[in-house]
Write a protein that binds this DNA or RNA. Structure first.
Lengths: 137, 137
DNA sequence: TTAACTATTTTGACTTTCAAAGTAAACGAA
DNA sequence: TTCGTTTACTTTGAAAGTCAAAATAGTTAA
């Protein structure tokens, strides 16, 4: 026996999250890949181009031009890697961090909105469910 | 007081779902927008270009070229609209429906995988949580 | 009948993307 | 050490996806 309903409900949740994110990013005048980079750098700190490209699911060639634009826009800075001169560390500038915090606040607001009618214990249970599912990917 | 952890855990879930979907679609040799169209048509039946474009979050101009390609590939067919000759109904072909069922099975498998360690009652609770959140967008 | 509106397609420009080739540095085995 | 291989990043050329705006065709309502 298998649960079609659960599967479809998860897909619906994903679709709605996706639409919300696109609308929010466009509304703030950013591009989706650039905000994606900001989210990853903001959540994990400086990292190498290679590593960032992997986390974003794009090639390093694509990332190079994306980071070029973001450096132009003042969101990120390239820094020398201490132990490997082939590598380059990318990190958020002050301005990039401001964009990260702002975007994070929006996520936060959505999370509040979605669980507004949940009790505290339900919210805790929901968190544990997400954590357990995240481990199974 | 607000819950950073829940917000970040939801974002993590979304990111993982997103990576999974991109990998699965690429692996099957399809493109993301085309599978998106297949999912929507498969789940809702034939619809007008306008309606499909809205559900996909793209303009009708963009959709026109996408549907051109999909028609070429034998996934969808354009049909005359009964009551409005300006409109065109788009629907899945036999082959398009096969792709839909195949992709739906993958969603299904993922849903099973993520909740493999859940008890039946936990799975039911999870479903109700998703349903409640989906209503709050 | 005609003006306003709606659905779709076409066009031109821009962004994102990849694969492949190029450059520079690190590594490792002889 | 040195030279072939691997790794990290950038560059380049081509393809896909996207939008805004213009064009086409059909509907609606006064």
């Amino acid at each position: 026996m298998s649960n079609d309903l659960l599967s479809h409900t998860i897909v619906e949740f994903y679709e709605k999250l996706s639409s919300w994110e696109m609308a929010v990013v466009k509304d703030a005048g950013h591009s989706l890949p650039q905000i994606h980079a900001v989210e990853i750098l903001g959540g994990n700190g400086d990292m190498r181009m290679k590593e960032l490209a992997e986390k974003m699911g794009i090639t390093t060639g694509t990332l190079t031009v994306q980071i070029d634009k973001m450096e132009q826009a003042g969101l990120v800075a390239r820094k020398a890697h201490q132990h490997d001169r082939r590598s380059i560390l990318v990190g958020l500038t002050e301005q990039g961090q401001a964009v990260y915090r702002e975007h994070d606040q929006l996520h936060h607001g959505l999370s509040d909105q979605l669980t507004a009618k949940f009790s505290d214990s339900e919210r805790e249970l929901l968190l544990s469910f997400f954590q357990r599912m995240n481990q199974e990917f």
